[in-house]
Design a protein around this nucleic acid. Sequence first.
RNA 1: GCGCGAUUAGCUCAGUGGUAGAGCGACCCCUUGACGUGGGGUAGGCCGGGGGUUCAAUCCCCUCAUCGCGCACCA
Length: 718
Amino acid sequence: MEINEKLLKPYDPTNTEKRIYELWEKSGFFNPDNLPDERKDAFTIIMPPPNVTGVLHMGHALMITLEDIMIRYKRMSGFKTLWLPGTDHAAIATQSKVEKEIQKKEGLSRHDLGREEMLSRVRTFAQESHDTIVSQVKIMGASCDWSREAFTLDEKRNLAVNTIFKKMYDDGLIYRGNRIVNWDPKGQTTISDDEIVYQERMSKMYTFKYSKDFPIAISTTRPETKVGDVAVAVHPEDIRYKEFVGKEYDLEFCGVPIHIKIIADSAVEKDFGTGALGVTPAHSMTDWEIADRHNLLRPQVINEYAKMSVGGENLLGKKVTEAREIVAAWLREQNLLEKEEDVKQNIGTAERTGGIIEPLPKLQWFIDVNKPIPERENKTLKDLMREPFENSEIQIIPDYFSKTYFHWIENLRDWCISRQIWYGHRIPVWYKNEEIFVGIEKPDGDDWKQDEDTLDTWFSSGLWSFSTLGWPEKTKDLETYHPTDVLETGYEILFFWVARMVLMTKYALNEIPFKKVFLHGTVRDGQGRKMSKSLGNGIDPLDIAEKFGADAGRMALVVGTAPGTDSKVSEDKIKGYKNFANKIWNITRFVLDNVSEDNFENEVENELTKEFKKIIEDITADMENYRFHLASEKIYHFIWHRFADELIEESKEIIKAGGEKAEERKNTLVSIWKDCLKVLHPFMPFVTEEIWSILPIKDRNLLIIEKWPFDHAQDKPQ
RNA sequence: GCGCGAUUAGCUCAGUGGUAGAGCGACCCCUUGACGUGGGGUAGGCCGGGGGUUCAAUCCCCUCAUCGCGCACCA
């Protein structure tokens, strides 16, 4: 057969991939509305929206690869496939990134710029970042429906956010309260428990008495907070202290008058330190809860800038770290210090700014996770998050992650959703004198002033599975594609995101958001280190696509990477799959070189095609069961080491000898090779599509909509 | 402290209740018209230790050790 000129040179992914992607986009097949035939069953994945904080990294590349594999496989299997892409405004992450840049380049803070100017700067940055991300997603070969693209902060999503906020407020699930929160003094905002990163540091533990006359010694690593103490708590069964419980003392501690009551509370560990806990309600989560139980005062002694807000000249206005030294020195001087020891301590820092978290009481908005919801059979939001996993409506892959999930739910506290930043969904609450209005839009009349705060970015992310489909409107999309089939994401955001999507979706629609959660691990460098800017060991997916082709990068990411486990990627590994792309290029050349167009028309069945059918059956089972790491390896292995190394090698003799056997062999090669390309297509879409376009097939479709070569509808209804 | 995972060839990792697998690397051979981005071959593993269940365990159970991760935190 006459050979296509392209095949005479080695495979060139760089030029091919771009052209092929345009071909797919033009075909319209990314959009399920345009798919041929009657397709009844939908298969839906909503893409976890990358943050508009910069560019894509290998983790995104893995996510896109896995989702694209699922979507392409299902599209070829006759499903009405929707893969809906989008991006996340990532409120605090994006704003703090832009703030840092402005600070660095212009020496200005956001307050120097003002709310409107700052927001406009952030929006510009977000737009640029968005454009970059979209082009990168395309380079990876993602067959997602761009006509339905969404953004967590666009108008439609804002309507969804405000609608559900109002609903939760009306149901009493959202409340405004003065409670202790995690305050980030550096970012000047609250953050949720999940945005805290604990760092181990050495610090000093001081054991001392408030005064000479006080009967009990206490231990602390934060003596400066002790000017805010209102009680000393001991365990109810601690005989050492029983006689003191109930007594009250008026003292002066480092120049500040304090009133201490001795109380018994079982939250206190008898064996820790002196077994007595100085209770500082305003600056410790545990102590706040103790104060709740014992009805204690909660004097605040530290302000939003992590400086002392009480005391005389010696303390007032001092940073907490300075105040710590001052109080310690005072204790030594007064001879009150009994012990001073070095201890390891986990210190909470803000994920985005690195600021040391200062627990403070603040007036904020919260979601109550323990309140019964009448229209949900009096279940709590916690219940709604837990149940779909308990009764297997939602399955996590790999399933051992469900244990981690349950563990997290158990420890869940009310979710603080208000943030003192500007970029994000503004809280849909308006105030006028003593009045408060919660609604989807600004109320009529003048003088209404909207709440200054914005919502935690995970609030809008939690709606993602249905806000993207048009909710609160009753759309056709919502009816067709919800609940979605798979949520594919990294295990590190199981709590941040997965749990919150379940919460929001169960609450808003009384449906699960997805049937399966497929978790992937972290992509590490060849030595197993996390890729990071500071280490400079990051691999840029774009460089990879440029150098080796996106197909090669995709294979390197997915072969052998079991769900939920971390993987290592090196350029060597990727290079191997570039070679593989070239291999199948040359296999095609051999096949076309040795067969005629007639061989493409002939049906054939023999031992070899039967053997191959078994392989496809096996691979299909892997695809159905989300074992893409095995499926990809199997087709790779078959093509290279069975088809090329053995079948082609022995074909040389057979074809040379000629006759009937030669013809049958040619038919066999063509038949198997066509199906190899189909099976490989979800993994290496570009090179397979390119080769498909070269094969002499009559009435050819694009490979993207060719039928998967195994009819599992009869064998394995999934 | 509680929980989860890992421990398999030199390296990176799959995998299965029935005499151990891949990729890369190493060594030897092949400069044969699809491809040297190639082909053929060789070496190399008491499948972390100990115990148990079983006719049979790398796989299931218990336990220990080491590493990693998550959560909670001790004030």
